Structure formats: C-alpha cells, structure tokens
Simulated assay, not measured.
Amino acid sequence: MKSIKTFAAVVALTVLPFASFAQSITATDTTIDGAEAQIAAQAHKAGASYKVTEANFNNGVHMTAELTK
C-alpha cells in the first residue's frame, strides 16, 4: 500500500509543472492558414509552443490550441 501511495505522489509531482501551465487559446478566421497564424502569434507572444487540438470548418475556421512551455 505504501508503494502505491509513493508511486501516486511521484506521478502527481511529475505532472504538476506541465498541468500548471497548460493553457488553451482560440482563433477564428476565414482560412486554416489565417487561424493558425493567429494561434502562432499568440503562442509567440506567450513565449510558448503550441499544439492544435481542434479545428472546425463551418463558414470559416475556428481553431483551438494548447500552449506548452
């Protein structure tokens, strides 16, 4: 039982720094390139990299991304 608690504590402490920064950002534009350019600009301003997590196409583009340090 003690080893399970220790393992859980190690996992929680390892993931904590990543989870504390995870931030979602969104952008809308008429093209995929335009929306991604907005995401890239927001990530650059925050000094972070990004990963696109969602994009919808319906009379325009709505894109969501997650920033990571």
Rank of each mutant, 00 (worst) to 15 (best):
M1Q: 04
M1V: 00
S3P: 02
S3W: 08
S3H: 11
I4D: 10
K5V: 02
K5D: 10
K5M: 05
K5E: 06
K5N: 09
T6L: 12
F7D: 07
F7K: 07
F7P: 00
A8L: 10
A8C: 06
A8T: 00
A8V: 04
A8Y: 04
A9H: 03
A9I: 03
A9N: 13
V10F: 03
V10R: 08
V11R: 01
A12C: 00
A12K: 02
A12D: 02
L13R: 06
L13M: 10
V15N: 01
L16T: 09
F18Y: 10
F18V: 06
F21G: 00
A22W: 04
A22G: 03
A22N: 06
S24K: 11
S24L: 08
I25C: 03
I25E: 05
T26D: 14
T26G: 00
A27L: 02
T28Y: 01
T28V: 03
T28G: 01
T30I: 10
T31C: 04
I32V: 14
I32W: 00
D33K: 06
D33P: 01
G34A: 05
G34D: 04
G34K: 05
G34I: 05
Q38V: 13
Q38M: 14
A40L: 07
A40C: 03
A40S: 15
Q42A: 11
H44D: 15
A46W: 09
A46K: 14
A48R: 14
A48G: 04
S49E: 12
S49R: 12
Y50L: 07
K51T: 15
V52S: 02
E54A: 14
E54D: 15
E54G: 04
A55F: 08
A55V: 14
A55P: 02
A55S: 14
N56L: 13
N56G: 06
N56T: 11
F57Q: 14
N59L: 10
N59Q: 14
N59C: 06
N59A: 13
G60Q: 02
V61K: 11
V61C: 11
M63G: 09
M63A: 15
M63E: 09
T64G: 11
T64K: 15
T64N: 12
T64R: 15
A65K: 10
A65L: 14
E66G: 01
E66V: 15
E66S: 12
L67R: 03
L67E: 13
L67F: 12
T68V: 14
K69T: 11
